[in-house]
């Protein structure tokens, strides 16, 4: 499989990356907890936390990618996204998870769990959205 060029990878998932929470606290990406996102969203005037439940994970015609169907928010809006298999999502109460944890660890040095149907992921939405 073609290895993704480092330039294409978002730098903030690299182990050791410094993340600033809404209250100004600095944490490493691998040390983030569910409450860090919840408390940051509570402080934010524009953003709020949504919970997005994984309903399906299907192969994609794009190499090294999958199509994930989520049920998003209170209204369970159906949303499909295509992501690289190593893309990490933050699962409530579990932490970083991806469709191919070994590849995530290989590319980001970020250890994570296997993303499964039924997992509830942290996502964001604007407070102004209906």
């Amino acid at each position: 499989a073609s290895s993704t060029s480092p330039a294409a990878l978002p730098p903030f998932f690299m182990r050791g990356s410094i993340i600033q929470l809404a209250d100004g606290e600095l944490k490493r990406v691998e040390d983030l907890r569910t409450e860090d996102f919840i408390q940051s969203a509570e402080i934010s005037s524009e953003l709020k936390i949504d919970s997005s439940t994984v309903e399906r994970i299907d192969c994609s015609p794009t190499p090294n990618a999958v199509v994930i169907q989520f049920a998003v928010g209170e209204l369970k809006a159906q949303v499909c996204v295509e992501v690289l298999v190593e893309y990490p999502f933050f699962v409530f109460g579990q932490g970083w998870s991806s469709c191919c944890p070994d590849r995530t660890t290989q590319l980001f040095e970020l250890s994570c769990a296997k993303l499964c149907v039924g997992d509830v992921c942290v996502s964001l939405t604007l407070r102004s959205l209906r």
Partner: peptide, 25 residues
Amino acid sequence: NVEPRSVPVFPWHSLVPFLAPTQTD
């Protein structure tokens, strides 16, 4: 002498996706 080097700091909201279908007020 060790030159001080800047370390990038990323905002918390860049790590989680916006998935909600968009329709603003």
